[in-house]
Design a protein around this nucleic acid. Structure first.
Length: 585
RNA sequence: GCGCCUGUAGCUCAAUCGGAUAGAGCAUCGGCCUUCUAAGCCGAGGGUUGCAGGUUCGAUUCCUGCCGGGCGCGCCA
């Protein structure tokens, strides 16, 4: 409908131009918006205001000419000029009824579109280091990424969801040593636990598993482990200490046993993460291993490519990428003095790999604390000859947990953080998923645990689900009263839906496909949650104001068709959020 | 110090590439269950959109400066 109005306006303006009433250069994209206020009709355009200056006439005068030149269209009942020069369109009510037919014909497909035209999008999200369970901070990225992926898939993009597993590098070594030390403890050795080791209980669990697997064969005397190590914090440097400990562990265990400890830890944690995300409704097409990437030589290849382009140089024994030539604030190390590649180097290779896999667009969802990383990665893309615009980084701000008034501590030390699993167990998947995407991603968010579990009208999840359950309940009542639904009769009688509440619902239903499209293109799932709240609200109002199961059969069936369309739309919307649509509550 | 995000009702947040009278929910106050689920509905009050300028027919939205909050500025990941 909107497109149609746009075409009509364009035609009108073309005509004015041919008549010489508008100068050639007066060209502005014609836009038609849904009117915010129903007093302004169904759609409104500000085109006369935009062109007034170029046309050299007052906006209202120009609006009058445009309206006069507007081709006739049967679905438009009336056109008004209002305010400073807005052109307001009032649609014929009959045109509004068609939405019910459309929803009930398209069913689950209602709201889906092909605007993506099959273009391939790679979306990487969560990608938390596999050094511990996911915590609530990861939850927002998970919910956001998964929902954006769903929205894109629903709008005709071919979506590939990926988790980048940072299973190479120093953090994995620290985890390995942490597990081994806990293992030694369980064997009866007594040693201090390093300041920068991983302290969570899950480390002990993995140590216990390791002990079941290998018995005491990895046991080494505490003295041999600690002998000659530099002091740990607070007296010494905890980083130097942990690095020395890592070397010692390798040396005492040998490469093979060390690798076994690492793999045991990695597999346990990855299985846990995978399970957690699955229960959260988040699935991936691929789990991409950094270790595999490094082992395949892809990192060297990527660096060689940069080198060929003249982007690398050596300084202080390290190899640097000249990213400052591409709008990064400084150059970045890709190979350290000790010969090890940096995380950044493998990330360059990873993104090169994504590009080579032929995706039209790459979306990375990161925590906002990584924002400083964006320019260097874009610089790398450009240096590799790719358009940096193909990479789109979406930064998600942190969620601060509250229990009522009280802030929930989130310190990682002492394993004090709230895990995603705990959150899900406490508030449930539906509330968690819905709450996480209720806010714009760049908004700092307060997540109130009490509110999320509360079964009341202040909980938007239940509010929306309740609307769905209520419709289902009406249909159950229909059967109990011994009536049969007649869909066709209801369609014939749609014109009986003249109540303001019904008109409002029809207009809101008609907006749904636009909402999905906008939410997808702007990567803003919160638009969908807000819409669903509004739709549910209008339904609840309608429910209270009118009885659906009336004696008048045509009217009854028309209303049933309308609320069935509402139910379907809510179910579709919740589906995109991976939130359930219960039939009773 | 530099960079990114942010500041809207008492609280949590919306506001359609700059649109008309800035909207919801919660909280507060007052109503509605012999009728399809009261996890609901109806009504009332509540605002100098952090501050000061600028651009514009029109600014919460864009620009500049200031003030406040979050985050980042490693041969860590």
């Amino acid at each position: 409908m909107r497109d149609q109005l746009q075409r009509l306006l364009e035609a009108a303006i073309d005509q004015l131009r041919r008549q010489g009433l508008l100068p050639e250069q007066a060209r502005v994209a014609v836009r038609v918006d849904r009117a915010r206020d129903s007093a302004h009709g169904d759609f409104a355009s500000n085109i006369a205001l935009m062109l007034a200056k170029a046309a050299g006439m007052p906006p209202r005068k120009l609006a009058e000419r445009i309206v006069a030149a507007l081709p006739k269209d049967p679905s438009i009942r009336r056109v008004e000029i209002a305010g400073p020069g807005f052109i307001n369109f009032f649609l014929d009510p009959a045109a509004q009824f068609a939405i019910v037919r459309r929803v009930l014909e398209e069913r689950e497909r209602f709201g889906r579109s092909d605007i993506g035209r099959g273009r391939r999008i790679h979306i990487e999200f969560v990608s938390a280091n596999p050094t511990g369970p996911l915590h609530v901070g990861h939850g927002r990225g998970a919910a956001y990424g998964a929902t954006v992926a769903n929205l894109l898939a629903a709008t005709g993009f071919q979506v590939h969801r990926e988790y980048y597993v940072n299973d190479a590098g120093r953090q994995m070594d620290i985890l390995t040593v942490s597990v081994w030390l806990r293992y030694l403890e369980s064997c009866g050795e007594s040693l201090p636990f390093p300041a920068s080791g991983y302290r969570g209980d899950y480390v002990r669990d993995i140590a216990a598993r390791l002990r079941r697997q290998v018995g005491e064969s990895y046991r080494r005397p505490a003295e041999s482990v600690l002998e000659g190590l530099p002091p740990d914090a607070p007296a010494g440097d905890k980083e130097l200490y942990i690095d020395a400990l890592i070397r010692r562990a390798r040396q005492l265990l040998g490469d093979q046993a060390y690798e076994t400890v690492l793999r045991t830890a990695l597999e346990a944690i990855l299985a846990d993460i995978r399970e957690d995300l699955e229960a959260f409704g988040v699935r991936y097409d691929r789990w991409f291993s950094e270790r595999d990437l490094v082992a395949s030589g892809r990192v060297e290849q990527a660096l060689a490519l940069l080198d060929q382009g003249g982007w690398l140089y050596r300084k202080d024994g390290a190899t640097w990428f000249a990213s400052s030539r591409l709008r990064d604030e400084k150059d970045r190390v890709v190979v350290r003095e000790n010969g090890q590649i940096t995380y950044f180097a493998s990330d360059i290779a990873y993104h090169l790999d994504k590009l080579e896999r032929g995706f039209d667009r790459l979306i990375d969802v990161w925590g906002a604390d990584h924002h400083g990383y964006v320019p260097r990665l874009k610089a790398a893309m450009q240096a590799l000859g790719a358009d940096p615009e193909r990479l789109e980084v979406r930064l998600v701000q942190f969620a601060i947990l509250y229990r009522g008034r009280e802030k929930v501590p989130m310190s990682t030390r002492a394993g004090e953080f709230v895990t995603l699993r705990q959150l899900r167990e406490e508030v449930g998947r539906d509330a968690a998923r819905f709450f996480y995407v209720m806010r714009k991603p760049e908004q700092h968010m307060d997540f109130d645990l009490e509110l999320a579990v509360s079964q009341s009208n202040d909980n938007p999840v239940y509010y929306v689900q309740y609307a769905h359950a209520r419709v289902c309940s009406v249909f159950r009542q229909l059967a109990e009263k011994g009536w049969r639904r007649d869909v066709d009769q209801g369609m014939e009688a749609l014109t009986r839906l003249t109540e303001p509440h019904e008109q409002a619902l029809l207009a809101t239903l008609a907006r749904y496909p636009e909402i999905v499209e906008r939410a997808a293109l702007q990567r803003e799932p919160h638009q969908l949650t807000h819409y669903l709240r509004e739709l549910a609200g209008e339904f609840h109002t309608y429910y209270n104001a009118h009885t659906f199961l009336v004696e008048d059969a045509p009217l009854r069936n028309a209303r049933l068709n309308l609320i069935d369309a509402v139910r379907q739309t809510i179910a579709n919307g919740l589906g995109l959020l991976d939130v359930s649509a219960p039939e009773s509550m």
